[in-house]
Design a protein around this nucleic acid. Structure first.
Lengths: 221, 221
DNA sequence: GCCCCTAAGTAGTCACTGTCAACAATGTAT
DNA sequence: ATACATTGTTGACAGTGACTACTTAGGGGC
């Protein structure tokens, strides 16, 4: 270069710098379609340097996605009220934090759930994702033990919760939950619905009599 | 070309052919990261020909996404049982069809909810998406009128439903609803939870006593 | 103190992409 | 028939991910 001969040949910690720069770009742009060369450029390094630290672009994206899940898990843990008044409070707090995380980091969030397109990276990635899932599982398990949550297969309940929150987050990011169409607090409304669905039979009585039981309802085959 | 002088100079209906070819490629590959040149190649046409019909690649993607929403709406309408035994049956049928559509067309489905990254195309796209939303709205409205659905702001309930189903679909596509972790029929479990949450107080009794009423639960401010 | 080894940079190249401009073939209105 | 708009074509351009070969900084063994 002509203007930076003082820059040391060895960067020091280029790996971290690349990740940091990429995270910055995720924060600035809304998509994750940045180029590796641009990352290198902004890190002040030649276009091939990142390849010394990541085998290819997909590897970097996978790394970013894993960091995203880690941050999300930490964020949710931090948002969990220390002395919740009720299980509903706890679930509500977690759900709000989750959606807030997604809306604050739309590109990162979208990347987290898109990185699987890079095939087999999914293994480790799913581990991180399921670690987030476990937070929800734990709350529900405690709720079942305390009797305030229906005694149903807990994974189904957790899947319902995760699906709901994930779905609402994606819709919110996509701008599909416009206030005029959907009211000002769609998440809370949805959460009420969900929590009431999870609520224990002691208060709610028997499930509706509309005969789900006898039907073969396997989806996954 | 040297081997295809018999191909007529004018294709006839290249616009449709490009769309059709692109849809094929969406069906084959799991991502929507196909190249425009490849589409042109498979359509048997020069690499720049599609530009006579689409200003750029994003325009084609947006068109595909709209087609996807249209197909989804038709598919859901067709799946709606003609003489439903109950509202639960109806909701269940729609939800299953929705998830099935997503799992049968993972790349297209993902594209449908990713195309907004191409900025302002979102207007028309959201129209199509909201047309799907309206199907759900209509069912719920009918349910409220019949008394089998709680009288709550219907947009919140619909958002809950859409969010849940959309989220479960995405998770299913991503392979995050693995059977070992989550049971074999997570959707049905989630649906039970949802429908019980939507269910009218007449059957279900008063909502859980975990004090939702008095609390300010606005999220969006 | 010296030498050499290697990790971590560099530049250069390749095939490929999206996009555009210039040109050719085709159908159509006058 | 002739001018024209449409819809193809070819060829170019810059920018990309990926790979290779070269160069350098810095540390450990002697």
């Amino acid at each position: 270069m002509q203007d930076a001969p003082n820059r040391p040949y060895h960067h020091g910690d280029l790996r971290r710098a690349v990740i940091e720069t990429a995270l910055d770009m995720l924060r600035e742009e809304k998509g994750w379609q940045f180029t590796l060369r641009e990352v290198a450029r902004r890190a002040g390094v030649s276009h091939a340097a990142p390849y010394k630290h990541f085998p290819d672009k997909a590897a970097l994206l996978a790394e970013l996605a894993m960091i995203g899940f880690d941050r999300l898990r930490e964020f949710l843990s931090a948002a969990k009220p220390t002395t919740p008044k009720s299980l509903r409070d706890e679930i509500t707090a977690i759900a709000r934090a989750y959606v807030a995380f997604g809306m604050d980091n739309p590109a990162l969030y979208r990347l987290m759930y898109s990185a699987e397109e890079g095939q087999a990276v999914g293994i480790h990635l799913n581990e991180r994702a399921l670690a987030v899932f476990d937070i929800l599982l734990e709350v529900l398990r405690r709720g079942q033990a305390a009797g305030s949550i229906r005694k149903r297969p807990i994974e189904g309940q957790a899947a319902a919760g995760w699906g709901l929150i994930h779905g609402m987050t994606m819709l919110a990011i996509d701008g599909l939950l416009v206030p005029e169409k959907v009211g000002s607090a769609p998440l809370d409304a949805a959460l009420s619905t969900l929590v009431e669905g999870l609520g224990s039979p002691a208060t709610l009585g028997a499930p509706a009599t509309t005969s789900v039981r006898g039907r073969k309802t396997k989806l996954s085959e």
